[in-house]
């Protein structure tokens, strides 16, 4: 009886340690924060994209509002949201590749490119539908540049 209990306890302990070593990214505040920033990007891009595609009537004021928020969001200092050990090899619930941490200057440059494309959208969004449409492509390119290099494929 005793040995069975001991084995069960040992198993539980091993399980707990393994669980801690391979943590769930959704519970990590930094991972949660950066994923929520991405959602905020997507929310504002959604307004701009719907207008670009003609799914929503073009509205210069609303477009500028969405683009201004996007520009503010993409210029946030995110350094605290990407602590070491929060890559896809270390935890569940994130697709962030470990290469982010070995290529930090490049990640920073790509982040800057996104902020620049967002700033260009902020300038363009109120200037008519065609001007908004033209600024959409570079934004998509800036998102893709980082996702190509630093995001794991969907499993």
């Amino acid at each position: 009886m005793f040995s069975v209990r001991k084995t069960a306890l040992a198993a539980a302990l091993i399980g707990a340690t393994a669980g801690a070593a391979f943590a769930d990214g959704h519970a990590n505040p930094a991972v949660k924060a950066r994923q929520q920033v991405m959602s905020l990007y997507a929310f504002h891009l959604g307004t701009l994209g719907a207008m670009a595609q003609g799914k929503m009537d073009y509205d210069a004021e609303m477009a500028t509002k969405a683009a201004s928020n996007l520009a503010a969001l993409t210029s946030l200092d995110q350094s605290m949201m990407w602590p070491a050990g929060t890559d896809s090899g270390s935890m569940e619930g994130t697709r962030a590749k470990a290469e982010i941490w070995s290529n930090f200057p490049d990640v920073g440059a790509k982040g800057k490119a996104l902020a620049d494309a967002s700033m260009a959208m902020k300038e363009a969004a109120g200037g008519g539908l065609e001007s908004l449409q033209a600024a959409m492509g570079p934004l998509g390119g800036a998102c893709g540049a980082c996702h190509k290099a630093y995001r794991e494929p969907e499993s």
Binding site: A42, L45, G49, M136, G140, C143, K148, R151
Partner: peptide, 24 residues
Amino acid sequence: LKSGFTPEYDSAGGEMVDVIANTS
């Protein structure tokens, strides 16, 4: 295929980014 944005405004990743560079 034009901007790389999905309907949820996620973006293309991986090899598809190169494909979109062409299809755009």
